[in-house]
Design a protein around this nucleic acid. Structure first.
Lengths: 239, 239
DNA sequence: GTTTATTTGTTCGTATGTATT
DNA sequence: AAATACATACGAACAAATAAA
């Protein structure tokens, strides 16, 4: 582990242990550098990391403070993660049922455009449909269009766990663009999600990319609104 | 403007002008440092800024790449901003109607806890209810509980513009915790939002804080789902 | 109200380590 | 194995913002 990560670890433990608490000012960068026996730049990198993790905030000329947070688990605090990983973080059981898996042909126009099929001829895209349970209650139905190259050789049964964990054995996942809408349940979804027509749903479209900005998958998911919400922390960048 | 911001500006212009395009590798940090006549650290800071702004992505040992993005405007790309500011960024007209404004008494338990009224006796909280239009269509109804100290002396009429702009004259806004849910419209909201009972709505709770992590306001907003969605970019932090 | 001390912000130069091709 | 590119780390100095004397 790098030095600045060790310092960041020590600082975040102090926050969790209550040595530094919400709204309290941390020691100055000079003092922390002296205490940890590192340069001030290293302390600044450690603090930057904890700001990116949304644990601290800074104010020029004033100091560094612990960010307020609720006791509830917030998905945004942990960055991009899949359903299985989120469930584990909550200490909940999750289970996944593969409803269908196979080649997507023909490829719908929007999916083809987003996944870059126009730039690459003969590109194959697979469609995976899954239903996911949270503590044995049906929570979400997802349709995932995945570029074949990243899941070549895999079978339906292989997708019963975390898709992200599976993909990361083959490719570095970097980021997702996500859009959240509210819609109403139709009869098909009602049957799958144990609800009824007209119930509220969160509809989430997302596209996930590699570190060199190549698309990996296009996901359309429906979440039961009474069981799921999206949390995030937005910062005001003075740009 | 600092040097690293000038470099960041130049780089982002090159991205917008298509000199560097999606999935293309940028010149190395050394080369950019030489070209701009600055140290490599300055280039790294510029790149870091553009990564925070979600314009670039890096991969160790490989290089720096332009992040894929859609042509659509994304609120997440611009960080924390209010309705008025978002409308301006879209080039849309927005209008705000103040439905009510006055002291909130008694203060509901949850709001009091979040705004820190338990730590500070005799704290006053005001309630502001507004309806907001987007291109002359009713888009959202918001209930905002604001700590009185930040809006002392202001009148209902003062809240017809951007609340953030108003607050920033008095206090530095740093971040918001936000939660998005899907719910159904009730008759009261239907009348205000020009919809009907049972239409889908996005319900957003948010709490906004200062840079030293003190709460400023608690906001509960209802957005017409057919007119509004939340976009964000999540990154996979390898932590 | 001005000065002074504190704290964060910026920038350089330099060296070495690690990951990828 | 070598070249390239990013990652980490140190020391030093000055600038800018804030708060307290």
């Amino acid at each position: 582990m790098a030095k600045f990560e060790e310092v960041a670890d020590a600082l975040s433990h102090r926050v969790r242990d209550g040595i530094y608490t919400t709204s309290q000012r941390l020691p100055s960068e000079y003092d922390l550098a002296k205490e940890f026996g590192v340069s001030r730049l290293t302390v600044r990198k450690a603090i930057d990391l904890l700001i990116r993790k949304q644990l601290l905030v800074k104010s020029p000329g004033k100091g560094t403070y612990v960010m307020s947070y609720s006791d509830k688990v917030e998905s945004g605090r942990m960055g991009l993660q899949g359903f299985t990983e989120a469930a584990k973080a909550y200490g909940k059981e999750s289970r996944t049922e593969v409803l269908s898996f196979g080649s997507l042909d023909p490829i719908p126009e929007e999916i083809g455009r987003v996944l870059g099929c126009d730039q690459q001829v003969h590109k194959t895209v697979d469609l995976l449909v899954r239903r996911r349970f949270w503590d044995e209650e049906p929570m979400t139905v997802e349709h995932v269009a995945i570029c074949h190259e990243y899941i070549d050789g895999l079978k339906a049964k292989d997708f019963e766990g975390s898709l992200f964990a599976l993909l990361e054995k083959r490719v570095a996942i970097a980021y997702s663009h996500q859009e959240v809408e509210a819609v109403l349940m139709d009869p098909d979804l009602a049957a799958l999600l144990d609800g009824k027509k007209g119930d509220p749903l969160l509809l989430v479209h997302s596209v996930t990319y590699t570190a060199d900005a190549k698309p990996i998958l296009y996901d359309i998911s429906y979440y039961r609104a009474d069981k799921y919400s999206f949390k995030s922390t937005l910062t005001r960048d003075h740009v």
